[in-house]
Design a protein around this nucleic acid. Sequence first.
DNA 1: TGGTATAGTATACAAAAGGATACTAAGGAG
DNA 2: CTCCTTAGTATCCTTTTGTATACTATACCA
Lengths: 120, 120
Amino acid sequence: MMKMQPKLCRVEDALGILVGKWKPIILLTLLQDGTKRFSDLKRSVPGITQKMLTNQLRELEEEDIITRKVYPQVPPKVEYSMTEYGRSLEPILVAMHEWGTAHTLHKMQKVKGKGMENLN
Amino acid sequence: MMKMQPKLCRVEDALGILVGKWKPIILLTLLQDGTKRFSDLKRSVPGITQKMLTNQLRELEEEDIITRKVYPQVPPKVEYSMTEYGRSLEPILVAMHEWGTAHTLHKMQKVKGKGMENLN
DNA sequence: TGGTATAGTATACAAAAGGATACTAAGGAG
DNA sequence: CTCCTTAGTATCCTTTTGTATACTATACCA
């Protein structure tokens, strides 16, 4: 049994930070590889546009999950990394990842079930 | 260090189920109180409209997270409860709740920091 | 005969999120 | 003089999410 009351629910706090089409993969990448510069992140997250990457990084920075370090160079160099606070999200990311992995089978059975209708 | 590769990320699987303005509180309510009928849920989630509640419940049902039991009565009676599969999300919900609770302080300090500017 | 209750649907609309594309600064290479 | 690089902006558009409001069926109660 859970000890939490829905009315006093703090789940949204964590969820708000993780939600966004690209945030989980950005965070996982930074957790794994440590510091990365903008263009490296862009390569690590296939399909993301510059706008969305900037956008998501700004939001994460605003929430104090990542830091942004600008080197006054040309061409520009900007490095991103997790903050201590950001790293505290790791258990949640891990829990979600494990859930997803453990329940891949469940999903496959649903899909298979649908396909079976044609075979019987 | 994490053992997962961003490219093979299964985080989205769990996230996709949890995302939606009302899903976490619906799930927490069902986890705590067990079976609930539509109108009870509506009362438990203040501010939600019928359409949104129906909507979110249908999505959760579709994902096999909750079950829907209809009693052929008038006025209608429909009961919702978590599936076994749905209950497996509990550790994630708990992890998020704990994170939110533990880091309320962090948030308060940010807000306080901003307010302090006027005081010095 | 009209009002109440439950669990919805239908319709229209507003807001938020995401995407495509073009543009910029400033130095170095050719 | 022009192109290349990086880390962005700016603008416009589409899709997804969420909201508001009105409507329905059917039995019971007065």
